[in-house]
Amino acid sequence: MEFRTIAELVELAETKELPISEVMIQKEMIAFDRSREEVVNQMAGHLDVMEKAIERGLNEEGLKSPSGLSGGDAQKIRAHIKKGGTLLSGADVLDTVSRSMSVSEVNASMGTIIATPTAGACGILPGCVFTAAERLQADREAMVRALFVSGAMGYCIANNSFISGAAGGCQAEVGSATAMTAAAVVEMAGGTPAQSAQALAIALKNMLGLVCDPVAGLVEAPCVKRNAMGGAIAMVAADMAMAGIESVIPPDEVVGAMFRIGRDMPTSLKETALGGLAATPTGKRLEKRIFGRDA
């Protein structure tokens, strides 16, 4: 049960006639000499933490981060859906967006979350898995399996490229999370391992080049809204893959492109708060307000 690349992972799943989630579960059991129960229960515990974070962000009154830069937007989306007016993008997309933002806002307020793969991108996977489960009437087991799919894909990305904004820009962080998530919801929807890989490629291609430019260096602006849009992109990419659309560039090569782009990206755009949105007049003013000094 060894794989290093997405192509190897898909091949392993196809040869053994197993879903990607099962390949990941078995690999984890073998690599760490743990029982299936231990491995699956640990992941089920992570799913519970995700659910609590979603509920907290959607329901807690006055949820704000210590800096005051974020909080409350997930609830605004929910209220907007409930009003019953015409929704331009549709209630399913906005449900995903509200859940993804909710977890991201809880993170910014120093609440409890699961890093997926990082805290900066923690909203995308829970937002999509819980919305997909609602749409597909999927049970808890299918949701836990989705987390293993996403972990398997993230494992390939992390070991061949990067997953942190400081190392590779936001494409490595929100980009990786979006790609991992798209692959995960494809398995939930009954797609094949190859379709999961295509969803990953389609999603990641649309995140390439995204820089990490957080205002005041905080995981808030633009991170919360990038989690929102990451959730939306993951769901659309999954639907595209389920429709049989394939990426012209194969998944591993897209990951390779992400690596090269990240390597070429200047330091000012890798979580240093020296470029991009952080360096705008408003970004700098906010930094001064929060930390009481210049950037």
Binding site: H46, V49, A108, S150, G154, Y155, I163, M180, V219
Partner: peptide
Amino acid sequence: IIGPVMIGPS
């Protein structure tokens, strides 16, 4: 990759 369970934000 899926973890750790943690207090935010980073």
